[in-house]
Design a protein around this nucleic acid. Sequence first.
DNA 1: AGGTGGTATTTAGCCTGGGTAATGAGTTAC
DNA 2: GTAACTCATTACCCAGGCTAAATACCACCT
Lengths: 146, 146
Amino acid sequence: MPDLNHDGDSAAAVSSLRSAVMLLGRRLKHQRVDESLSPTEMSVLGTLARCGSATPGELARKEHVQPPSMTRIVALLEAKGLVRLEPHPDDRRQKRVSQTERAEAMLAESRIKRNAWLAHLAEGLDEDEWETLRAAAPVLEKLAHL
Amino acid sequence: MPDLNHDGDSAAAVSSLRSAVMLLGRRLKHQRVDESLSPTEMSVLGTLARCGSATPGELARKEHVQPPSMTRIVALLEAKGLVRLEPHPDDRRQKRVSQTERAEAMLAESRIKRNAWLAHLAEGLDEDEWETLRAAAPVLEKLAHL
DNA sequence: AGGTGGTATTTAGCCTGGGTAATGAGTTAC
DNA sequence: GTAACTCATTACCCAGGCTAAATACCACCT
């Protein structure tokens, strides 16, 4: 564990981190790459793209959402044709969720839009700041999944 | 503006940043330092602590929230005795919002709890990762307020 | 002075996206 | 073979944003 008393700025840093994340999260909710797709739905698609396929329960744990919420999210994604549901081979209680070809296409397109959004957002940052953020991205991700 | 084509990782970084922020934000909502105080209410108190006093409109702009939402937040804070509302000296349309002594005490206490939460969270990070995060905190804050 | 347009705040009502509790089907352990 | 547990689902609820419209006030321009 890091030495939290390394200097007094740690408390300030966590405070600033906390409020920045909350604020950014609020703004990101509106900054959707694809209208009609909520941030969590996007996130689930991203997870599926990385993991191949998963059960609703696994997805709920990875996204830190309660199972009933994931049920609803998966149902919405299925209705939009972005996800396929199959019975689980070994356990008939579970289901396997996997993304469709259409989801892959959508993710590819959204990556393009994200770059545009990024370019706009990054106008206010200089090269060093951007570099710092790039380095922090994987750490934040790790932190979020702790 | 940073060179977004510096390498291909930029798109991946923004994608990872985006999902990490959304996920962390969701978790932070539950990780409240003070039950009975929403994240945005905390954030408003933090802003007031930094700025001294402000009008509801100014607060709404700083928190990137619509004015009606800020009205409700301020009303809740006032009901909890954390904030004081006074008429604006020059303009009777506006009001001045300032924190009470009780809010200062609460913020001090919450800082202690935040350190405990931080210590727990940071157990999963090594010193380098934590350092990266410390460096990124102010940049994230800047980004959030862009 | 008086009217006109603009701004700060509030009120009323809506909607999204999460949550909890309870149910049903299926599995596992004893 | 039954008791206890797990996965997914259904039904319902609530918080915390939003928009639109109302209200009060200011500033400017004849």
